[in-house]
Amino acid sequence: MNDSMAARPAPLVTVTMTVNGRSVTRSVEPRTHLIDFLRNELDLTGSHLGCEHGVCGACTVRVDGDIVRGCLVLAVQLEGARVETIEGISASGEITDLQEAFVRRNALQCGYCTPGMLMCAAEFLRTRPSADREAIRDFISGNYCRCTGYHAIVDAIAETVEARRSAKGRGGHR
Protein backbone atom coordinates (compact mmCIF):
# COMPACT_ATOMS: atom_id res chain seq x y z
CA MET A 1 0.00 0.00 0.00
CA ASN A 2 1.22 3.45 -0.92
CA ASP A 3 1.77 5.48 2.25
CA SER A 4 0.10 8.62 0.99
CA MET A 5 -2.99 6.54 0.23
CA ALA A 6 -2.98 4.96 3.64
CA ALA A 7 -4.32 7.96 5.41
CA ARG A 8 -6.52 9.60 2.85
CA PRO A 9 -10.12 9.31 3.99
CA ALA A 10 -12.48 7.91 1.38
CA PRO A 11 -15.57 10.01 0.67
CA LEU A 12 -18.58 9.07 2.74
CA VAL A 13 -21.40 7.14 1.12
CA THR A 14 -25.02 7.59 2.11
CA VAL A 15 -26.96 4.40 2.68
CA THR A 16 -30.57 3.74 3.64
CA MET A 17 -31.72 0.43 5.07
CA THR A 18 -34.42 -0.92 7.36
CA VAL A 19 -33.11 -2.02 10.73
CA ASN A 20 -35.53 -3.81 13.00
CA GLY A 21 -38.43 -2.35 11.08
CA ARG A 22 -37.21 1.25 11.14
CA SER A 23 -35.77 3.02 8.12
CA VAL A 24 -32.35 4.55 8.83
CA THR A 25 -30.13 6.69 6.67
CA ARG A 26 -26.49 7.34 7.47
CA SER A 27 -23.40 8.56 5.68
CA VAL A 28 -20.55 6.15 6.34
CA GLU A 29 -17.08 5.31 5.17
CA PRO A 30 -17.27 2.57 2.55
CA ARG A 31 -15.08 0.32 4.73
CA THR A 32 -17.55 0.28 7.65
CA HIS A 33 -18.83 -3.24 8.18
CA LEU A 34 -22.37 -3.93 9.26
CA ILE A 35 -21.55 -4.59 12.91
CA ASP A 36 -19.60 -1.36 13.36
CA PHE A 37 -22.51 0.34 11.62
CA LEU A 38 -25.07 -1.18 13.97
CA ARG A 39 -23.00 -0.62 17.08
CA ASN A 40 -21.49 2.77 16.40
CA GLU A 41 -24.08 4.50 14.23
CA LEU A 42 -27.23 3.02 15.74
CA ASP A 43 -26.05 2.07 19.26
CA LEU A 44 -27.37 -1.46 18.75
CA THR A 45 -24.73 -3.13 20.90
CA GLY A 46 -26.36 -6.56 21.05
CA SER A 47 -24.39 -7.72 18.00
CA HIS A 48 -20.83 -8.59 18.92
CA LEU A 49 -17.45 -8.96 17.31
CA GLY A 50 -15.36 -11.97 18.24
CA CYS A 51 -12.94 -12.13 15.32
CA GLU A 52 -13.87 -9.74 12.51
CA HIS A 53 -12.80 -12.36 10.02
CA GLY A 54 -15.83 -14.48 9.55
CA VAL A 55 -15.10 -17.43 11.83
CA CYS A 56 -16.77 -17.12 15.24
CA GLY A 57 -20.36 -16.16 14.44
CA ALA A 58 -20.67 -13.66 17.31
CA CYS A 59 -21.75 -11.11 14.66
CA THR A 60 -24.60 -13.20 13.22
CA VAL A 61 -27.51 -11.00 12.12
CA ARG A 62 -30.28 -11.37 9.59
CA VAL A 63 -30.24 -9.59 6.23
CA ASP A 64 -33.32 -9.92 4.01
CA GLY A 65 -34.42 -12.92 6.03
CA ASP A 66 -31.17 -14.92 5.96
CA ILE A 67 -28.48 -15.02 8.60
CA VAL A 68 -25.12 -13.55 7.64
CA ARG A 69 -21.83 -12.73 9.34
CA GLY A 70 -22.17 -9.03 9.92
CA CYS A 71 -18.42 -8.55 10.05
CA LEU A 72 -18.11 -9.70 6.44
CA VAL A 73 -20.77 -7.38 5.03
CA LEU A 74 -20.15 -3.71 4.39
CA ALA A 75 -22.89 -1.30 5.38
CA VAL A 76 -22.77 0.32 1.94
CA GLN A 77 -23.71 -3.00 0.33
CA LEU A 78 -27.02 -2.93 2.13
CA GLU A 79 -28.85 -0.12 0.36
CA GLY A 80 -32.53 -0.96 0.67
CA ALA A 81 -31.87 -4.12 2.71
CA ARG A 82 -33.87 -5.37 5.67
CA VAL A 83 -31.65 -6.01 8.70
CA GLU A 84 -32.76 -7.71 11.89
CA THR A 85 -30.67 -7.94 15.04
CA ILE A 86 -31.09 -9.57 18.43
CA GLU A 87 -32.80 -6.40 19.63
CA GLY A 88 -35.33 -6.70 16.81
CA ILE A 89 -36.15 -10.37 17.12
CA SER A 90 -36.37 -10.02 20.89
CA ALA A 91 -38.91 -7.22 20.59
CA SER A 92 -41.00 -9.08 18.02
CA GLY A 93 -41.37 -12.08 20.33
CA GLU A 94 -40.28 -14.47 17.60
CA ILE A 95 -37.89 -16.39 19.86
CA THR A 96 -39.25 -15.76 23.33
CA ASP A 97 -39.59 -19.50 23.92
CA LEU A 98 -36.00 -20.10 22.79
CA GLN A 99 -34.71 -17.30 25.00
CA GLU A 100 -36.61 -18.74 27.96
CA ALA A 101 -35.11 -22.15 27.25
CA PHE A 102 -31.60 -20.65 27.13
CA VAL A 103 -32.14 -19.06 30.54
CA ARG A 104 -33.77 -22.12 32.08
CA ARG A 105 -31.10 -24.47 30.81
CA ASN A 106 -28.18 -22.06 31.42
CA ALA A 107 -27.20 -22.24 27.77
CA LEU A 108 -24.97 -19.21 28.25
CA GLN A 109 -22.36 -18.10 30.69
CA CYS A 110 -20.62 -14.87 29.71
CA GLY A 111 -23.34 -14.22 27.15
CA TYR A 112 -21.00 -12.83 24.52
CA CYS A 113 -21.79 -15.50 21.91
CA THR A 114 -25.46 -15.56 22.85
CA PRO A 115 -27.03 -13.03 20.46
CA GLY A 116 -25.28 -14.63 17.48
CA MET A 117 -26.08 -18.10 18.76
CA LEU A 118 -29.76 -17.20 19.14
CA MET A 119 -29.90 -15.75 15.61
CA CYS A 120 -28.41 -18.98 14.32
CA ALA A 121 -30.71 -21.17 16.41
CA ALA A 122 -33.72 -19.15 15.25
CA GLU A 123 -32.72 -19.96 11.67
CA PHE A 124 -32.50 -23.64 12.56
CA LEU A 125 -35.94 -23.55 14.16
CA ARG A 126 -37.38 -21.79 11.15
CA THR A 127 -35.78 -23.78 8.36
CA ARG A 128 -35.13 -27.31 9.57
CA PRO A 129 -36.41 -27.89 13.08
CA SER A 130 -35.19 -31.18 14.47
CA ALA A 131 -34.45 -32.36 17.98
CA ASP A 132 -31.63 -34.55 16.71
CA ARG A 133 -28.58 -33.51 18.69
CA GLU A 134 -26.14 -34.13 15.87
CA ALA A 135 -28.21 -32.04 13.50
CA ILE A 136 -28.28 -29.21 16.03
CA ARG A 137 -24.54 -29.47 16.67
CA ASP A 138 -23.83 -29.37 12.94
CA PHE A 139 -26.03 -26.37 12.37
CA ILE A 140 -24.57 -24.23 15.16
CA SER A 141 -20.97 -25.22 14.45
CA GLY A 142 -20.20 -21.87 12.87
CA ASN A 143 -21.01 -20.14 16.14
CA TYR A 144 -18.27 -20.44 18.72
CA CYS A 145 -18.99 -20.54 22.41
CA ARG A 146 -15.96 -20.59 24.64
CA CYS A 147 -17.82 -20.94 27.96
CA THR A 148 -20.57 -23.53 27.88
CA GLY A 149 -19.08 -26.50 26.06
CA TYR A 150 -22.24 -26.45 23.86
CA HIS A 151 -24.13 -29.27 25.62
CA ALA A 152 -26.58 -26.91 27.32
CA ILE A 153 -27.11 -24.95 24.10
CA VAL A 154 -28.00 -28.16 22.28
CA ASP A 155 -30.39 -29.03 25.13
CA ALA A 156 -32.11 -25.63 24.95
CA ILE A 157 -32.58 -25.76 21.18
CA ALA A 158 -33.80 -29.37 21.26
CA GLU A 159 -36.24 -28.53 24.04
CA THR A 160 -37.62 -25.62 22.02
CA VAL A 161 -38.05 -27.79 18.94
CA GLU A 162 -39.98 -30.35 21.00
CA ALA A 163 -42.11 -27.73 22.71
CA ARG A 164 -43.06 -26.10 19.41
CA ARG A 165 -43.82 -29.46 17.91
CA SER A 166 -46.12 -30.50 20.73
CA ALA A 167 -47.78 -27.07 20.77
CA LYS A 168 -48.50 -27.57 17.08
CA GLY A 169 -49.75 -31.09 17.72
CA ARG A 170 -52.19 -29.69 20.27
CA GLY A 171 -53.32 -27.08 17.76
CA GLY A 172 -51.25 -24.38 19.40
CA HIS A 173 -50.58 -21.29 17.39
CA ARG A 174 -47.01 -22.15 16.38
Binding site: R39, D43, L44, T45, G46, S47, H48, T85, I86, E87, S90, Q99, F102, V103, R104, N106, L108, C110, G111, Y112, T114, P115, L118
Partner: peptide, 21 residues
Amino acid sequence: VARPQARRFVFGRGRYTDDLR
Protein backbone atom coordinates in the same frame (compact mmCIF):
# COMPACT_ATOMS: atom_id res chain seq x y z
CA VAL B 1 -32.26 -22.11 39.96
CA ALA B 2 -31.55 -20.27 36.73
CA ARG B 3 -29.27 -17.24 36.70
CA PRO B 4 -31.31 -14.06 36.73
CA GLN B 5 -28.54 -12.22 34.88
CA ALA B 6 -28.94 -14.56 31.92
CA ARG B 7 -32.13 -12.68 31.08
CA ARG B 8 -30.16 -9.63 30.05
CA PHE B 9 -27.85 -11.52 27.73
CA VAL B 10 -30.53 -13.38 25.81
CA PHE B 11 -32.12 -10.08 24.85
CA GLY B 12 -28.82 -8.62 23.66
CA ARG B 13 -28.73 -6.43 26.74
CA GLY B 14 -25.33 -7.43 28.05
CA ARG B 15 -23.17 -4.38 28.74
CA TYR B 16 -19.57 -5.15 27.94
CA THR B 17 -16.82 -2.57 28.14
CA ASP B 18 -17.02 -1.75 24.42
CA ASP B 19 -20.75 -1.10 24.80
CA LEU B 20 -20.20 1.86 27.13
CA ARG B 21 -20.57 5.32 25.68
